[in-house]
């Protein structure tokens, strides 16, 4: 079967390598971005991970590639990070809507809300933030996230749920 064939191969084949990139690069990028924020250059981390995979392609079978990529990107980021506060940028609401007709009061409140949101996100643990945003922003199902992060579906569900609860508390009650 094709799957058996794949298992016997390593990642040194260009076409396999290219497929792995198609399959995992975006998820890996989003994961690193949501987890650590922008200041650690998620794109570079993705590049580094794929380069590392290429260097070690003889040792890694395609089915192991994904977890290899994720741990390399995660670890290289952790190496530079000093657990700084992660501030994610938000796109201002006014851009998408026809801002001319918006009530300044509303705009101000919206701005306040988003600032609170930003702050609340920065207070979440990396794991919770990554899972929550992959779910809410990227529209990924619990099962997909579980696969990406290499944890159980239940754990993902728990992370997202507690993230939501924590965010609501931070934003609406304080």
């Amino acid at each position: 079967m094709t799957k058996d064939k794949l298992l016997n191969k390593n990642c040194c084949d260009q076409s396999i390598f290219s497929k792995l990139h198609d399959k995992h690069a975006k998820d890996l990028h989003d994961f690193i971005y949501y987890k650590f924020g922008e200041q650690f250059n998620p794109k570079d981390k993705v590049q580094q991970a794929f380069l590392k995979l290429w260097e070690n392609c003889k040792k890694i079978t395609p089915d192991k590639a994904k977890s290899y990529l994720f741990s390399v990107a995660n670890n290289t980021t952790l190496n530079v990070i000093k657990h700084e506060k992660v501030i994610l940028k938000y796109e201002s609401n006014t851009k998408s809507n026809n801002s001319d007709h918006q009530d300044p009061q509303f705009l101000l409140e919206e701005k306040e809300y988003m600032d609170k949101y930003q702050n609340a996100l920065s207070k979440l643990t990396e794991e919770k933030r990554a899972a929550f945003l992959l779910n809410r922003v990227e529209g990924k199902k619990h099962k997909e996230i579980a696969k990406i992060l290499g944890i159980s579906r239940k754990a993902v569900e728990k992370r997202i749920y507690t993230a939501l609860k924590q965010l609501r508390k931070e934003i609406h009650e304080i």
């Binding site: 990028h29 989003d30 993705v46 940028k89 809410r136 934003i171």
Partner: peptide
């Protein structure tokens, strides 16, 4: 509140890859 949180989360979308 939940709906709003979920909705506004989209503003934090990662830059296009």
């Amino acid at each position: 509140e939940y709906i709003k949180i979920s909705d506004r989360a989209k503003h934090f979308k990662a830059p296009h890859y």
